[in-house]
């Protein structure tokens, strides 16, 4: 112990955290590669500076064309907004219901392997395609209008909530399931007395979030003709009716804002 002060003054040890890529050569090589790629892209992308130059005044004309917002057709706008909200509500409700069985099928700790693969496949397949692509399909099948939009949002919402449900179930502590199984309870009693109470708050939270997301998405799917305020918006753009576009954009902002407030209010209440 007496030698310690002496050793302390003699030489201080150094310590450095290990770098993620240990060899400095590799590190600098990768850095150089990224820089080289950026330069290469800038040269090969063939950015047409002329187009950018002519686009700027056009943007100016468009935005100035939006002022003042056209308030003479509020009824038309309100109809669109209402349709969007109805689409979002209906889709959320159906999504919530459909997501439960699919989510349970997608939980590996609860169902036999083959069922699990079917459940997961449904979730993965429906998640693969963006809402817009699904909406195009449904518009082709069922024609223009809110039906296609609602179906799109049901598919997307179901798969989103189902994925959350499946993962929440898989994250349940195995001991909880064992304890209820050990009492002689079967599959459905296990669902009632262990799975349901433990995942319910998250499930409701995710569903409310999805309602909020559906309101946003309902404005988007309209652009490919699947109903709602988005369809009205797309129509105004194609007619260069920018004053009315502006009114609709403001309405969408208000709508999304409103959805956000409602959903965060409900979610804080759930906690």
């Amino acid at each position: 112990m007496s030698s310690l002060p002496a050793a302390r003054t003699a030489e201080l040890p150094t310590w450095e955290r290990d770098k993620i890529i240990k060899s400095p050569g590799t590190r600098y090589f990768l850095l150089a590669l990224i820089v080289f790629y950026l330069i290469l892209t800038a040269f090969t992308l063939e950015i047409d500076w002329g187009r950018i130059a002519s686009g700027i005044p056009r943007a100016g004309r468009m935005f100035s064309g939006m002022i003042p917002p056209d308030l003479s057709r509020l009824q038309l706008m309100l109809n669109g907004v209402l349709e969007s909200v109805q689409m979002a509500l209906a889709a959320s409700l159906f999504g919530m219901i459909l997501a439960v069985p699919i989510g349970i099928c997608g939980a590996s700790n609860l169902v036999p392997r083959p069922v699990y693969f079917v459940g997961r496949s449904i979730i993965i397949l429906t998640r693969t395609f963006h809402e817009i692509i699904i909406a195009i399909f449904f518009v082709k099948i069922f024609g223009f209008g809110p039906l296609a939009g609602v179906l799109t949002l049901i598919v997307a919402g179901t798969s989103f909530i189902a994925k959350m449900v499946a993962e929440d179930i898989e994250n349940l502590p195995p001991g909880h399931l064992d304890a209820i199984r050990a009492t002689g309870a079967g599959f459905f009693k296990l669902l009632l007395y262990c799975v349901a109470p433990q995942i319910l708050p998250r499930y409701l939270g995710v569903s409310i979030y999805r309602l909020d997301a559906n309101i946003r998405h309902s404005t988007v799917v309209g652009i490919v003709g699947a109903g709602g305020i988005g369809q009205t918006l797309a129509a105004t753009f194609s007619r260069y009716d920018y004053n009315f576009s502006c009114t609709i954009l403001i309405a969408i902002v208000a709508l999304v804002f409103f959805g956000e407030i409602v959903s965060s209010w409900i979610r804080s209440y759930l906690r």
Binding site: G175, A179, R181, G184, P197
Partner: peptide
């Protein structure tokens, strides 16, 4: 399942369902 009704089990981590 019927047999398990006749066997009680107690766990280290209690394994209660917390939200019940």
């Amino acid at each position: 399942r019927k047999m398990r009704r006749r066997i009680g089990m107690i766990f280290q981590e209690y394994n209660l369902v917390e939200r019940l």
